[in-house]
């Protein structure tokens, strides 16, 4: 008997089930297909304009006009001071960014540079996480995910020494969010 069979047999013995019961299988299949949302806090259900306003906004970032910057594309090797990424979306409920890994969005950029600048379209600022999961399923297909989805809510921090909160533990010391454009 493999370890897998042993564990499944033990679970089924404890629950008093065989694993072949039609109602149980249906309950699981239904939930995976329908993914009910549960309790979604009202704080995320705002008009589009105020959704964007919940975000800390950085209107004018001077790096755009800066001509002395050395600009690279791709993953970071740990020697970059600043990185710019594009967010798949953002969630007003908790000021959270959602970034997906892929050809144009290396995950290392989210963690290695000291300063992380994330650009998000105002239209992609959602009220709650559930809205972005719906969008993600539309983009990648049901049951599929990119290798990495990062929810980012502020710069890296630690309070492991005497409960003193310090920014920039292992990841970025600074996080700038640029909300681009206006919501319709």
């Amino acid at each position: 008997m493999t370890a897998r069979d042993t564990i499944l047999a033990s679970i089924r013995r404890s629950l008093g089930v065989s694993g072949r019961e039609a109602p149980r299988r249906k309950a699981v299949a239904d939930r995976l297909r329908e993914h009910p949302p549960g309790v979604v806090p009202a704080r995320g259900k705002l008009a589009p304009k105020s959704r964007a306003e919940l975000f800390p906004r950085l209107a004018a970032m001077p790096w755009q006009r800066e001509r002395t910057l050395e600009v690279k594309q791709g993953a970071s090797d740990g020697n970059d001071l600043a990185a710019v990424s594009h967010a798949f979306g953002a969630v007003a409920e908790s000021g959270t960014l959602m970034l997906t890994s892929g050809k144009d969005n290396p995950t290392t950029l989210n963690f290695l540079p000291d300063t992380h600048i994330v650009v998000v379209d105002a239209d992609d600022v959602a009220g709650d996480y559930e809205t972005l999961w719906r969008k993600l399923r539309e983009r990648f297909g049901a049951g599929a995910m990119p290798r990495t989805v990062n929810w980012i809510t502020g710069p890296s921090r630690s309070a492991d020494i005497e409960q003193t909160l310090i920014l920039g533990a292992h990841g970025p010391r600074r996080l700038h969010v640029m909300v681009v454009g206006e919501t319709e």
Partner: peptide, 10 residues
């Protein structure tokens, strides 16, 4: 409200 990094790996 949310930890700084919540990461989904697939």
């Amino acid at each position: 409200d949310m930890s700084v990094y919540t990461t989904f790996s697939t």
